[in-house]
Design a protein around this nucleic acid. Sequence first.
DNA 1: ACCTGAACACCGTTCAAGT
DNA 2: ACCTGAACACCGTTCAAGT
Lengths: 226, 226
Amino acid sequence: MMLMAAKTKRTERRTDALSKQRIVDAAIEILDADGESALTFRALAACLATGAGAIYWHVADKNDLLAATTNDVIARVMTDVVGEAEPRDAIRAIALGMFDAIDAHPWVGAQLSREPWQFAVLQIFEGVGGQLQALGVPERAQFDCASALVNYVLGLAGQYAAGARLLARDTDRSAFLATVAARWVQLDPAEYPFVHRVAAQLSEHDDREQFLAGVDLILAGIETVG
Amino acid sequence: MMLMAAKTKRTERRTDALSKQRIVDAAIEILDADGESALTFRALAACLATGAGAIYWHVADKNDLLAATTNDVIARVMTDVVGEAEPRDAIRAIALGMFDAIDAHPWVGAQLSREPWQFAVLQIFEGVGGQLQALGVPERAQFDCASALVNYVLGLAGQYAAGARLLARDTDRSAFLATVAARWVQLDPAEYPFVHRVAAQLSEHDDREQFLAGVDLILAGIETVG
DNA sequence: ACCTGAACACCGTTCAAGT
DNA sequence: ACCTGAACACCGTTCAAGT
């Protein structure tokens, strides 16, 4: 849409050539607007005013397309996040950048946890791991520490994507959490004492704060090996 | 297969009635043998010697089927794992039980990270959270701590499932890791210094040990809030 | 070189019809 | 009540044919 702003007059014909970047942009628009299930090659082709097969000239398959859209979003996060001097703050900034990106584009969360070998995850791994030296973590422990942080972030990614998939577009999150909490309370307290106990906190908790608390927990653990 | 052991003579006709449990057992067999993509209603129906539509009498849809198979596997893990007196050991046992279950059934990892609101995740949450009181974690911090641990486990779950999906059935994991490490080394060391540094450790590291190291890291962090 | 769109080989799901 | 299997409405992907 933003790419067509310059020539808004003619909608009946596409005048500019196809490119991988234009395809990725259109795919992101569809994913953001209507979710993962709305991204089909047919819908994408219609949006780009072309045939479904044309997309295959620029993109290998659907996996490639999803990897490209995810890389696009994550690369933006990682470049936006530079400039924290303190390593601890830098890691927190990366984590929060990830959270906000997944909050804005829940499908990114699904894709990250589904294909963790893709380039996007490597960028997160580098961003987090690069701070560990400055944090005083011994060389041989750095791999485990970076892995723990990235695993944690990917765990949230999947969880958040699932939540977004479940939520109707206009259902607000607090109503949904209230429903879950109500279900938790109905469980047998003898068998599920812990879930019973925290059910009250569920509806009033803040996902972003809880996520950051987890990052801080892992950072505190990392400090003990330093 | 194990259910047919008693009457192995006749294969041309199914004699016993369908049930949700029989469907779930057959689905697990298919998933274990040939992976997530092999589980279709047609394949499942053929395996059960029935029509595709019959399955819908016992199972709401494919989501329901996958949730049921996952619950089955996780419930087995959680009952096998009871009996550790020390809360720290209990949490480690649950985590390792999860790791081994996902290692044996990689599709469980995908399902857990895709649908974290399902009952299976609640069981993990209870199992982990129930130990925090004994660990001396203050009430108001328990929710965040349990959430961090579960998020971390779900992160691994997705990663492991993706690895299994990528690996050919007979390709061994070390060969795969060597390939990834080779790719990492080829990256620009100026832009990816950390990834470059740990590439050597990638091919010789043990996933299970690294996973447990992460659990210990989080446990160490949890102790600092106690 | 790049695009078109019909065709192919699948899916999950439904439903009239059977027992 | 439970099962059957053809039919429906989709998919991703391919490919001969166009420009």
